[in-house]
Design a protein around this nucleic acid. Structure first.
Lengths: 186, 186
DNA sequence: TCGGATTGGAACAGTAGAGCCCCATTTTCG
DNA sequence: CGAAAATGGGGCTCTACTGTTCCAATCCGA
């Protein structure tokens, strides 16, 4: 019924907008297997659809943060959990990267401010000696998102399994943000 | 004269297209301080402008690769040099990320294939013990581009100096792609 | 089964941009 | 200086998309 159709539109919008941010409403409707008229009935204006997409993405991100239990264990372990949860977001990653203005307050844009829970996690990692103390929390936030996007693209374009890509991702995020015990001299 | 105007248009196009991939030709002309008619005289169709931009970007990337001397020194040192050269590309980074299809053959898209010189460099790093042998060259390629873009965004949005951001970038890329001498256990 | 709810096809005007042409103005160079 | 080149403003058509309305067909629950 209503809720079902609405969700189908939102899912299709997330997928298609992530690939082509300026895609027409007709194309979104087609991707959702729905008539353009129906789409207009649920979201009279494009901006309203975008707001709804924003809300949906925000909710999914929030859920991922909750599942990652950022306040438990060592900083690096929490960061690894968050990496895995974010990686599972799929199409949402592409959307967040291609429409930073759409999901600005929640995503990776505006490095000066990042989620306080994330910041607390990184600072804990600084203190427990598992995260590189020279990297400010917003930088870690940025690098995590960058590598997530790289991993998602790698998954789409190369024929590597999801599991393998996740392994590579966690390994490089750990190397990038983790404390360097014996750094190779410049 | 001709060459001067043409270059002004290309420079403006690279900057503006990097921020808004669907920007109108009128806006590009305005950014180049040139009449819309003049732009149409140099590039009769939008696609021709895009091809010229592609050529320009390709040339700048090629120049950066040359300056980085990928075939000299240890793998990690060559990767660090390349990181610095790419970081200097400025607006081009934004364009490459926001228009992957435009610069597909030269950029970071299609992870299955990457520049043979880059691949050789990474493999040398595997053998000389400076780059993580568990990371395939295309993954390192993707990783580098993602971090470059994140660094560029960080530079634009936070009030951190260019030099500081470059330092964070090199440190992060080194940590992510470099060999892990004593990895923190999972 | 019946009736309201939902759907989607078709057509419409309004808008924005692309591509094109003309011509007056300005710049550049011999 | 004078001619050729270059510039840019204005206007025109064409196309694509948006937002809207109307209405027939279909789906679903009472």
């Amino acid at each position: 019924m209503r809720a079902r159709t609405r969700q189908a539109i939102l899912d299709a919008a997330i997928t298609v907008l992530g690939q082509e941010p300026t895609v027409s409403l007709g194309a979104i409707a087609a991707a959702a297997d729905v008539g353009r008229t129906t789409l207009h009935r649920y979201f009279p204006e494009r901006s309203e659809l975008l707001r709804a997409v924003n809300a949906e993405v925000t909710a999914r991100l929030e859920r991922a943060v909750g599942l990652a239990r950022l306040d438990e264990g060592r900083g690096i372990d929490a960061l690894r959990r968050l990496t895995r949860e974010y990686f599972d977001l799929g199409d949402v990653l592409s959307l967040i990267f291609n429409q930073p203005h759409l999901t600005a307050e929640v995503g990776w844009a505006d490095p000066g401010v990042c989620d306080p829970r994330f910041e607390t996690m990184v600072r804990r990692g600084h203190e427990d000696g598992t995260l590189d103390p020279d990297l400010p929390p917003p930088w870690v936030h940025n690098l995590l998102w960058a590598q997530l996007y790289a991993a998602y693209g790698y998954l789409a374009d190369s024929d590597t399994s999801r599991h393998t890509v996740l392994g590579l991702l966690v390994r490089t995020v750990t190397g990038a943000a983790g404390v360097k015990s014996a750094r190779i001299e410049e």
